[in-house]
Design a protein around this nucleic acid. Structure first.
Lengths: 237, 237
DNA sequence: CTTGACCTTGCCCCTGGGGCAAGGTTCGAC
DNA sequence: GTCGAACCTTGCCCCAGGGGCAAGGTCAAG
């Protein structure tokens, strides 16, 4: 005949939890001694360890209640199911660990793997970090707006990066970000960009200005007067 | 500028969770459009994926709040710590799986491994299941009353089981459980038990009657008139 | 006799949201 | 132009699984 504290210690739970299980009807209330203290038997300890094991497995108390006096087969089936669930949860935690590692490593966590690869290529190309951030944010917005379109576009963009002229244009646009909108080099750059677009099959869906405009809409500091002028110059030749 | 639903889908959380993060100050409230809808930017998506990753790792929201605008080093240290914690939790879940398997397998979960081994030896010896249950419950109570004493006692008991006479006595006591308290074989059994005890070093701490009495106290159906008579016979020769 | 460790009931608090109500909005189809 | 579906808004209460604290009663040792 043991007290609540000893029982709780034995099972590795708190006395509070034991009383909670009484309230929920999981563990039968034991008899009281002359002073009103609860006095427990070995059977209570067995039940409590069972409850603790199931709660540790994440089984809700309401379900444990039904499981405690279930027959062998029902219990075995339930345990098998709970075990499968545990396996899944372990796998899930493993994936979370991977993502946690990516949280340190850069932007891979926030965009699709394809976009992450594209941003890596851009970085290798040598564009500025600011440009990279603009691109990343643009792709995030595109992925929310239309994941399928974004997937198609990113594939085409990565193809485009194989073209030396496109790579050169990317770098030019990057440095042009800081130019004055009256810079005399802007019309030439616009013309060069337009003529390169003209040689392509579907220029309307893939323009850099699209991204720039999207990014500019979403980021207060993302707008560049020079880029805005470029966009105007390219729209009306 | 995306709506709350698109943002939530992108990050893989519910709109409810997003509003919850606003209330907690984890995610800044975005501007509203003319109809009062929240309109989010790419930065919100980045923050939200970060929050989701950390909550999936079990980090409390209150702590995430501090982590979101922490500097590189602080964040790195925190992530390392969280990762360690995840590793621990995975290990813990693995142990829970083992315990869950034992929940099907028998009594190993409810007593210490030493007691489980002792009960196995008793089972092999051929005592009844009822006797095993009585023993198990007795050991549970002893372990709650005094874990150190129980550990010492169980070690001695396992030694004793090597003695053929003790094994024979165990089996005799087992069958005697159902005898009438007036059974003429009881005095002879008591005398045989007493004389065996007499040949031992510390008979007072290891008597079977101790266990029987403890078990009898705790289990309503655990008392046997024959065993009670045996105990009296052995106390007063 | 005191002191510290137990025990009792009761109440409110916390996290991390879910569910539902009672509306207003937007968008595409007809 | 209007209908329905699918959005969005705020607000409120609910859940598990306890923790913390109050305001006592009890017990065992020194």
């Amino acid at each position: 005949m043991i007290t609540i504290g000893r029982l709780a210690d034995y099972a590795g739970v708190t006395t509070k939890a034991v009383r909670h299980y009484h309230e929920r009807g999981l563990l039968p209330e034991p008899g009281r001694d002359s002073s009103g203290y609860r006095r427990y038997t070995a059977q209570h300890a067995i039940d409590l360890v069972k409850i603790r094991t199931l709660t540790a497995a994440g089984v809700p108390l309401a379900r444990i209640k039904g499981l405690l006096d279930a027959d062998e087969d029902t219990l075995a089936a339930a345990i098998a199911e709970i075990d499968d669930d545990l396996e899944d949860r372990i796998e899930q935690l493993r994936r979370t660990r991977d993502q946690l590692a990516q949280l340190r490593g850069g932007d891979r966590l926030f965009v699709s793997p394809e976009v992450a690869g594209y941003l890596d290529e851009l970085r290798e190309l040598g564009v500025s970090e600011r440009h990279l951030r603009l691109e990343r944010d643009g792709w995030i917005l595109m992925q929310t707006a239309s994941p399928e379109d974004a997937a198609r576009w990113i594939a085409e963009k990565r193809d485009l990066l194989a073209d030396p002229e496109f790579r050169a244009l990317c770098l030019e646009h990057d440095v042009a970000y800081d130019w004055s909108p009256d810079d005399p080099r802007l019309p030439a750059l616009a013309e060069r960009t337009r003529s390169w677009f003209a040689g392509r099959a579907e220029p309307q869906a893939l323009g850099n200005p699209d991204i720039a405009r999207l990014a500019a809409q979403s980021l207060p500091g993302g707008s560049s007067p020079a880029w805005e002028r470029l966009a105007r110059l390219m729209e009306r030749p």
